[in-house]
Design a protein around this nucleic acid. Structure first.
Lengths: 200, 200
DNA sequence: TGGCTCATGTAAGCCGTTACATGATTTT
DNA sequence: AAAATCATGTAACGGCTTACATGAGCCA
């Protein structure tokens, strides 16, 4: 039997393995812990849970009488094998980024130095907020969840690096604004003016 | 007139501003320079170019007789204003990541230490390749393209940080495999065995 | 009783990739 | 003459988000 799931399918399988056993619980965990490197919305989670059950990787049981309406999922042996296979068998890992701040910065030559500095400051603020979110929202270290903690540290460290990088660039550009300086990194470019730039 | 483009629309506008004046040239630049933080495929570029022309932000001219078939685009004044507006007016910047390696790592408690180490090594190799790609593929520093160079440095530095982080984690986990050590980060967990993990 | 959280879902639609199609020109 | 590159496009499809719909139980 061929179980070729999307990474989000594996995310859900893994979440169930870790103890998030309802769609709602998965949603919460994703928001707290993985949204910074892998997001998932209700529109994905609930249909995917059903698909995984149909594929024989999960089993479901409704809440007992008197309890709040709720569907609890468990891994089947096939599900556990599939999860383990994904975790251990190497394959091209999807790695995608969409960083609009960096995209703007890429065109920074079209801006004045002041405008470029403002842009970088905005990028920094964004990463500071993201970092604060990771710091607060991820659950505290749990004896059986070392890797949740490790991944949290990754997020904190990565964004700290970016914040530091932004700060350095801000300072570097600010220096060029000082009266004594010669070279400017970016030519003052106004919407009406022409940009002459060699191709390549 | 309301010009609310997708970031990819602005990417194309910016690429034309920078001197990539055909769909083909934009494609190449994206591959070399921005794909690491903003990708774009033919299926997006060509239709978007036409949309931008219809919106009055670009004008097109066919290649002169005898030259290779080719459509050259230029920014209109409206296009230049729109681009400048996007670059300077602050707004919520889209920032998305999909990092399957990190996602696997998040579930690392289900693995043996050896398996976890193998996974991290794979992540590191991936980032080493991406970093090498950035180093090679991005064009050399051009007098009028400082920010292309700055963004390249960002990519190199960021991936270098990740590579270092992976290496450290590998060493840390390897220490736990040594005969004298007590604690193990991850419990040896096999596909057949049960994972007992408290919710939350 | 009213509002909040818990909890599960669906529908529309965008964004983007993959894969293919086409053909001209340049290089080997 | 063949192969590679230049160059522009389209069609199908998948993944994901947004927004909405629904309703039960809990708490003030």
């Amino acid at each position: 039997m061929e179980h070729d799931l999307s990474p989000t399918g594996y995310l859900i399988l893994g979440m169930v393995a870790i103890g998030a056993c309802s769609g709602y619980a998965i949603r919460n965990r994703v928001e707290r812990a993985t949204r910074f490197f892998w997001a998932a919305s209700n529109g994905q989670i609930y249909p995917e849970l059903k698909r995984l059950e149909t594929a024989g990787l999960l089993t479901s049981s409704p809440a007992r009488d008197g309890e709040r309406r709720r569907i609890e999922y468990e891994l089947t042996d096939a599900g556990r094998t599939t999860l383990h296979g994904w975790l251990t068998h190497s394959s091209r890992l999807t790695f995608e980024q969409r960083n609009e701040g960096l995209l703007k910065l890429f065109f920074g030559d079209v801006l004045t130095t002041e405008e470029a500095i403002a842009l970088i400051r905005e990028m920094r603020h964004h990463h500071e907020m993201v970092r604060a979110g990771i710091e607060l929202a991820t659950p505290p270290n749990h004896p059986d969840r070392h890797f949740g903690y490790i991944v949290k540290e990754y997020g904190l460290g990565l964004h700290a690096w970016v914040i530091g990088w932004c700060r350095q660039l801000e300072e570097r550009l600010a220096k060029e604004l000082e009266p004594g300086s010669e070279a400017t990194v970016s030519t003052a470019e106004r919407p009406g003016a022409r940009t002459r730039l060699d191709p390549q």
